[in-house]
């Protein structure tokens, strides 16, 4: 890496530091860390009628319903 491109890399780091990415990422890390397990398969249901489950949604989507 030449001295020049090193300067650029530092410029970019400083830019990212000031951009608010740090604040956003702190929170993002928190949110990302939980519930990352596959979207809940078995949702608790009380009624036995029509339920818009993921399967139903997939059907609608595929059928362009």
């Amino acid at each position: 890496m030449s001295a020049n491109s090193k300067d650029k890399a530092v410029g970019r780091r400083d830019f990212l530091k000031l951009s608010g990415v740090a604040a956003a990422a702190g929170g993002a890390a928190l949110v990302n860390s939980e519930g990352d397990a596959e979207a809940s398969e078995a949702k608790e249901v009380s009624s036995s009628g029509y339920r818009e489950t993921d399967h139903v949604k997939t059907y609608y989507k595929l059928a362009r319903f």
Binding site: L16, V21, A25, G26, A28, L30, V31, E34, G35, A39
Partner: peptide, 29 residues
């Protein structure tokens, strides 16, 4: 470090755009 931060923001966007957040996720947001 700055690049890891970028990855976190990307992951947050991916998570929220892939499906709507559940109750717990909404709470942490």
């Amino acid at each position: 470090e700055e690049d890891l931060l970028r990855a976190h923001v990307y992951r947050l966007l991916a998570k929220l755009l892939r499906a709507s957040p559940d109750k717990d996720t909404l709470h942490s947001i």
